[in-house]
Structure formats: C-alpha cells, structure tokens
Write a protein that binds this DNA or RNA. Structure first.
Length: 893
RNA sequence: GGACACAUAGCUCAGCGGUAGAGCACUAUCUUGACAUGGUAGGGGUCACAGGUUCAAUCCCUGUUGUGUCCACCA
C-alpha cells in the first residue's frame, strides 16, 4: 500500500544506486541500435552544483532517457574539466593557509599536490549530478588531463604547429598582474568604472610656450609614450605634424605624427601613443615605426626598462601610485590643463579580479581566422544547426571577427606545451620528449640539453577537443567511428565562444566533420526577479537544498516547464512547490488506483476496450503521447511538460477518475473489469511518458503498480528500459472524444450556474433536459450516474414539458438545461445572469456578422474559415434565442 | 558604436494571421472514502506606442519608447 505522500529522499538514493549498478546508462559500441551521442559540457573539477548545471543536466537527461526509449543506443559522455587557473587558485589558497606559495614547493611537488586535491575533492560535482538523477555513461567518464586526452592535446598542438596554424609571437597580450599569466580576450571582462580624464600639456620643442594638449585616462603610461598622434585632416594640428614634443618628466623627445587613429572628436583631438601598453597604440606604433617602451613589469609595477627612460624614483612603484606621482609632477610643472570626470570600461581578469595590463610578451597563438572559415561554412550549410536559430547570428558575428587565440598560460596546472628549446633558442615541437631530443641531437651533436617551454595551454584548448578526444582519438577506435559526430550538444550561451565555436573549429579540422549536428542553447537561470544569481547578491538558490526540500523530480519538472526557448529562466521556490504538488497529485491518483484494484494487466489490449469512456481516455492518452514526443524532438521542453501536466491533472485526475468512480464499484462486472484494467494501464502509460522528466517518482509508482519490491523489481521492469508508447491514428476515437466532451460540458454548465446562483454545494437538485435530440437523450441515459454525481443532482432526465416557474436555464447545443428551483431561485440574480449571457452572445453575433457581411472577406478568406464562422454564428444565434426565451419565461413568472 | 533578444492578467511566463492562455496570487465555497501539497466555481488583459501589409494583426513589416544581454571601445 502506498504511503500518504511521496517521500522523495528515501526513494531517490535507492533507485539511483540500482540503476547505476545495473549498467542502465551504458552505451554499447556493438549495439545494432542507431547511435545517439550527446557530449556533456564537462563541469569544472572545482565546481559544485548550481542552477545552471541543474538546468543543463536536466535537459540532457531528458533527451538521453527519451532517446533510449526511442530505441537509440545513447552515449551521454560525462567528465570533468581540469580548469587550469581556477583549480590552481584553489590549491594555492590551501597552500596559503600553510603560509606557502607554489614556488616554495616547486613545479613538480605543486602538481602532485593538485592531483592529490583532485583525487580527494574532484568528484563532488559528479556526485551532485547523480542526485539530480542524471544518467550519463559513468563508465566512460573522462577528465581533460587523462592520459588519453593528453595524447589528443599533444597531437593537435604538434599538427597545428606543423601546419603553421600555431605559432609563437611577441605582441601585446592581456596580462593578469595578479595571476602572472596571459589570458585570452574572452577572459577579460570590462567593468564600468568612474574615472578621470586628464588633459595634459606637452611642450613643443623649439617653440616657446607652445603646447599640444593630450587627454588620457592613464597618465602613468606617459612614461612610455613614444609619439603624439593627430588626425591628418585636423586643421588645428596640421602645422605641428613632424615637430617634436618634449615629454614632461622624462624629457624624452617624441614626434607628432599624423594618423587617422586620432579622432578629432575625442578629447583634444591629439592622443598620446604608448605602443607597449595599449592595443591601439601598438598598431599606430607599428605603422610609424615607433620604439616600444615597456615601463611595467609582470606585477604591473614600474620597471626600469632597457633604455632606462623612466626616472629612478618611479622604478618599483605600483601603477596606481605612479599615476598619482605623475599627476603631482605634471601639476607642479603647470602642465595640467584640466580634469574631467569620465565613465569608462576598465578591463578586469575574470579569474584574478584585477585590472588587466596590456603587456608585450612572447606567447603561443592559434590562427583562429583560418580555422574559423570552414566552421562558418558548416553552419551556413546547415551541417550544424543552432536551436533557437538566432544564435547562429551571434556565432557568425564572432567568427567573422575572430582574433588570434592566445593559448599559452604562465601557470603550472594544465597541459604543458610540447615545445623544447635548443641552445640557440631553436624550437622543437614534438609529441614526445624523445622525439624532441632526437631532433636536437641531429642538429647540435650529442651533448645537448633542451629546455621545455614552461607554459601550459589554455584550458579551453583541451575542451575544444572534447567531442572526439573522449572517444579515444587519436586512436581509431570503434567509439570514434560510431559516436562522432554527436547528435546534440546542450549548453548555455555563456560559453558559445569559449567552447562551442572552438569545438567547431577543432572538430572540423581534425575529424573532417562537424562535432555535433544540433546545438541546443538554453538560457541562464536567474532568480525570481530576473537577477543573475550571485553569491555577493545573496540570491543564489541552491539546487541541492531544493532537492532536499521538494525532491529532484519537482526541481526537474520545474526547470523543464520553465525552459522555453530564447528566454531566461526565472526560478522561484513557489514554482517548485507547485510542481511538487503536481508530483503529489500523481502519487495520490496512483494511490486511488491501487485502492480500487486498478492494477496493471500486462496483456491489456487498448484496442479491445468496449466502453466509450475508456476509448476516450485512451484517445486522450494517445494524443498527449504524440504531442509530448513531438515537443521533445523539437527541443520544446516546456511544451512537453505542459502537455503532460494538463493530461495528468486536468484530464486523467479531474475527469476520468471522477467518471469511473461509479463504474469501478458498480454492478456491471464486465464494465467494472474493463474500466479497472484501463485505468491501471493508462496510469502506467502515463508514468512512462513522465519518466524522462520525473524518473524517481514514476519508477517508484511503476514498481508498486506491478506489485514488486526493490528486490524483485529488476532492470527489465524499469520504465527507463521500455519503449516510448506509440499509438496509431486509429487509436484516437473522435466519436468517443466528442461524446465525453458533451458530458464534460454539461456538468461544467450546471456547476457554473449553481455556483453563480448560490445554490448550496450540498443541495441535491433535479435537472431536466429540454428539446434534446436522440443522441443527447442516449448520452444522458448512459452517463446518468456520472452526471448526477458530478453535478450533484438528484435526478437528471430528458423531458420536453415547459420549464417550471423559477427555473435556472442554460443551453447545451440543441438542448436546454433546466434546473427547477422554484423557491430557491433569486429571480433578479438569474435574470441578470441571463441578460449578461445574452449580451455576450449578441456581441459574438455582431462580430461574426461584420465579417460575413464583408464581400472582401467572403471572396478572399479561405473556404473553411467562412464555413467555420457561419457555423459559429448559427450556434450563437441558437444560444441567444434559447436564452432570450428563458429570460421571458422567468420574467413572466 | 554594432548585434541580438524582450515588452501579453497583480506576479512569472506560454501562445498565435481567424472570439486571449497557464501556473502562482486573489475571491467565494466545499473536509464527498485518492489527494486541503486537495475539489468546485469566479474576478482580472486596448496583448508597450505609432504607422503599414492583409478580407482579417496581439501575431507579419517599419519606426518610436523602455528593458536586458553579448561584442567592440581604457584620449
């Protein structure tokens, strides 16, 4: 016997362990089923479950479970990402508690420490995904620093280097002065900042008291200025081009150059050029062959450069202190023209959280522009589709303007770059150290020592290979053949550039085909007010707490129901509570079935039922099964959830179960048995349809329905092992649907009027059906018990005598429903109600008349629309005349 | 500056060229043998604004306003 409510906590753990142990999620390379691969975006090994993971995982799990039920051999490929900077920071923080830095340990010992941390804490996130009910193939779990994946990374690096698609270059990079590493453009986040715009006067050489005014937000960089630029067409400065400026403080002489980069509209129209510390200035510097004076070191402190152009007093000073000092000196020299306050975007490192400094360093780059071309074409040709489709535009936008990808990082945790340097700095890029040595020996003789490049690769470099590296590539495995390309990738838009675009480039280049056919981009989960969840705002909803309180199924259903395409998910706990109630409703419906002998007959044949009522529920079930499958195939998860919700609550519980109550305890044995069997079977089919979204609840109920226990409920019984129910067109019995719809409408009409007219709910009243045709009479007779019970009637019969005085009247198709309530009826109230109904009918008729009297409408509207409108006018007129008659009778009384 | 979304009931959101939908909240009522985490009924919307296309626009197009996001931008 089922308990009174569903205790999610007990059930979830129990089932999950059994599922996983049984190998129910394992893909089978040798299967003769069609493959369906879905690579999981590997969460950071440092991660713990947040709502974004919960949404992402729920969607993938629904797809995986649904596709298994569709008869596919599903490989949902799980794993974690080594998350270079993030993980290194976690371990460095632990070291800091011991008052140590990674340099105290040295590279090797430090890496040992990180691995140790990973072994101890790295599986937090995968455990949490299990709690959500996720069913990836854990037996194939990968880590981006596994041996196999390392091999793939090296192979890719070496090949791209040989193809000149990876190269080393000295140029400006985004330098994080806190983490001491270069980062890519994508890892820089601009933050709106209030600052100042200082207008400085630079004296012109050889002209007494002549100045050129430049405006800057970063006065300290003037120490590295090597020119002042003005626009070639700017008349204000035409005569000054070619003259020299005496740079204040340093006294260096720098030229005034004409360059169209200078914007006459901005600042003073003249701009200082610091090629070593600004991306735009760098370009200007190259065009004019200017020296590049680097004045900052790797801590972003003022460095004494080779040319020693920085006054000694500045050396070692922090960049922001230097700014103050420069300004003081400038002001003392009388060269500060003015200061304006100014809002501007300051670049911060997304991990380190400090202001990024453009710095001139040697780094490794991927020629992304070349790799992007086929990746753009593939989307163009529809080989990979984005859902929703408008994301392809964002993808093109970025790909068309893609910049070289800086892939080297000056940290220790990650894939060390497979490049070795010989005594003369010549470079050996090789897959193995031995290979590098062999090459070096051939060049230098026998006594060479090679230095390996200390840098590691950007974490996203290895994730870019995920769809094939996880399958065993570069080995030519059966998995690679079978599961590449993947069918679907499910991910958030926040990593479209970081990850999706790069997988496209690498996949196409190395595998000769796109990595996945469809990319489903889901929204961000926000709080109920639409705010991004963040620890600092304190509005984070912890999925694990929600699971504890409401159950994993309730959370899953909520996320599914809210996952409409193209919109953010605003999550409120009230919503989860509502869907928890839905789970309870289903639980109680099952309880009712259990109590009334509505068990599951395995040999039940839906097409052999005789009773219209049972044909009806089967038709409705078939309909919802189709709608749900269609929605899931189209990635419209919210629609799938809504169809199931309405069928379960609105159709099955509210109507079917109520209808069948008199039948399953009634005197007619064959009706009783058929109805019980149908109920049990429909419930079980419903559990099957709900299983991908609510796996725990449905499995538990299914087990009970079969009369099994955990011990006897084995893999073959599990819902997740079964096929999705398919129903042929003929399962849907239109006549049965129409008939039951009539009963529903009749009961609803009576209930509504009773309530409106304040007839006490408990009052058992009489009902007469006037002017009914034979069909209606027959229906009234067939469903008499049901109608009386649900509309709370003492009698319900067809009778064509005139409505007695003081009756309530309403209309159903050709017939009038009459409730004779002589003493009880408030005539004024009823008359008002009828008038309101008549007005409504009237408005409807007028609206339709306007259409039907319009010759253009008759000429141009499609035939069926005209027919439809004509019919509905007839109906409305019929309704109006019946109501009018009822009103007359009432008033005559 | 460029791009992309979004604007529908009190709230959160679906939807759609042919009479506006859901959940929550609200109101009334009901403890009837599955369920008060429930039943029944009800109120509530010029579908942001202005034009256009169409027989017909909340839906398609253009513009306006507002909101959000991404990209670019350290004068």
């Amino acid at each position: 016997m089922l308990d009174k409510t569903f205790e999610s906590k007990d059930v979830e753990k129990k089932h999950y362990e059994l599922w996983e142990k049984s190998g129910a999620f394992t893909a089978d390379v040798n299967s003769n089923k069609a493959p369906y691969c879905i690579p999981m975006p590997p969460p950071n090994v440092t991660g713990s479950l947040h709502m974004g993971h919960a949404l992402n995982t729920t969607i993938q799990d629904i797809i995986s479970r649904f596709e298994r039920m569709q008869g596919r051999d599903v490989l949902w490929q799980p794993g974690t990402d080594h998350a270079g900077i993030a993980t290194q920071m976690v371990v460095e923080r632990l070291l800091a508690e011991e008052k140590k830095t990674r340099h105290d340990l040295g590279r090797e010992k430090f890496l040992e420490r990180v691995w140790q941390w990973k072994e101890e804490s790295g599986n937090t996130i995968t455990g949490q995904l299990r709690r959500l009910g996720a069913t990836p193939d854990w037996s194939r779990e990968r880590f981006t620093m596994d041996d196999g994946l390392n091999k793939a990374v090296n192979k890719v690096f070496v090949q791209l280097f040989k193809e000149n698609l990876i190269y080393k270059d000295k140029r400006l990079v985004n330098w994080d002065p806190k983490l001491h590493t270069a980062i890519s453009d994508l890892e820089v986040e601009p933050r709106e900042t209030k600052g100042n715009m200082w207008h400085l006067k630079y004296p012109i050489k050889g002209m007494a008291d002549a100045f050129i005014v430049i405006a800057t937000t970063r006065p300290e960089t003037m120490l590295g200025d090597t020119a002042v630029a003005v626009h070639p067409d700017d008349d204000r400065y035409k005569d000054l081009v070619g003259k020299m400026v005496v740079l204040p403080i340093t006294g260096r002489e720098i030229p005034i150059v004409a360059d169209s980069y200078a914007d006459p509209e901005k600042g003073s129209g003249a701009v200082k050029i610091t090629p070593a510390h600004d991306f735009n200035d760098f370009e200007v510097g190259k065009r004019h062959n200017l020296p590049m004076i680097s004045i900052l070191d790797k801590d972003a402190k003022i460095a004494g450069p080779e040319g020693a152009n920085v006054p000694a007093a500045y050396v070692g000073m922090d960049r922001f202190d230097a700014r103050k000092k420069v300004l003081e000196e400038i002001e003392a020299l009388g060269l500060l023209e003015k200061v304006e306050s100014h809002m501007y975007q300051v670049p911060y490192g997304d991990r380190g959280g400090v202001v990024i400094e453009p710095l001139l360093t040697d780094q490794w780059y991927v020629d992304a522009k070349t790799l992007a071309q086929p990746a753009i074409k593939a989307v163009d040709e529809g080989k990979t589709k984005f859902v929703p489709a408008n994301w392809s535009k964002t993808y093109y936008e970025w790909m068309n303007n893609i910049q070289p990808w800086c892939i080297s990082r000056q940290i220790w945790w990650g894939h060390q770059i497979p490049a070795w340097y010989g005594p003369d700095n010549s470079v050996f890029v090789a897959e193995t150290e031995a290979e590098a040595y062999a090459q070096a020996k051939a060049k230098f003789g026998n006594d060479v020592t090679l230095e390996r490049d200390p840098d590691v690769l950007d974490t996203w470099f290895s994730s870019a290979l995920w769809p094939f590296s996880t399958l065993g590539w570069p080995e030519n495995t059966a998995e690679v053949k079978r599961y590449y390309p993947a069918e679907t990738l499910v991910t958030g838009f926040d990593i479209l550039f970081f990850w999706v675009a790069r997988m496209m480039m690498m996949g196409i280049h190395f595998m000769g085909d796109v990595p996945f056919k469809t990319v489903y981009i889901h929204a961000l989960v926000r709080d109920e007010k639409g705010q991004k969840m963040s620890k600092s705002k304190g509005n984070v909803i912890d999925p694990l707490k929600i699971i504890d309180e409401y159950g994993a199924d309730a959370l899953r259903f909520t996320l599914t129901a809210l996952a409409a395409q193209g919109r953010d998910v605003k999550l409120s706990p009230a919503r989860v509570e509502g869907y928890r109630n839905f789970a309870t409703k289903l639980w109680n419906a099952s309880r009712f079935c259990e109590m009334n002998g509505c068990t599951l007959k395995l040999d039940f044949k839906p097409d052999s039922v005789k009773q219209t009522i049972n044909k009806w529920i089967i038709s409705e079930l078939a309909t919802v099964s189709r709608q749900t499958a269609e929605a899931l195939k189209a990635y419209k998860f919210n629609e799938a959830a809504m169809h199931l919700y309405h069928f379960t609550w609105g159709t099955f519980c509210d109507w079917y179960i109520e209808f069948t109550k008199p039948l399953i305890t009634g005197a007619d044995e064959s009706v009783k048995q058929e109805t019980r069997d149908t109920t049990g079977w429909v419930l079980d089919q419903l559990l099957l349809l709900l299983n991908p979204i609510m796996p725990y609840l449905t499995e538990e109920l299914h087990m009970h329905l079969l009369g099994k226990t955990e011990a006897s409920h084995d893999k073959a019984d599990w819902l997740q092992s079964k096929a999705w129910p398919e129903f042929s067109e003929k399962t849907i019995d239109k006549a049965a649907q129409e008939e039951m719809n009539w009963v529903v409408r009749l009961i609803s009409e009576i209930r509504s009027v009773r309530s409106d007219m304040n007839v006490p709910a408990a009052a058992q009243i009489k009902m007469l059906l006037q002017g009914a045709n034979d069909t209606s009479k027959q229906r009234l007779k067939t469903y008499n018990d049901i109608i009386k019970r649900l509309a709370r009637l003492s009698e319900a019969e067809a009778n064509d005598v005139a409505a007695p005085k003081g009756s309530l009247q309403m209309v159903i198709d050709e017939a009038s429903i009459v409730l004779p309530l002589a003493d009880v009826v408030d005539i004024k109230l009823e008359s008002a109600r009828l008038q309101k109904e008549i007005e409504k009918a009237n408005a409807n008729i007028e609206r339709i008349n306007k259409m039907l009297n319009n010759p253009a409408f008759l000429a141009k509207a499609p035939e069926e629309v005209v027919v439809e409108q004509t019919e509905s006018r007839t109906e409305a007129e019929n309704l109006k005349s019946k109501l009018t008659q009822a009103l007359r009778q009432l008033e005559a009384a």
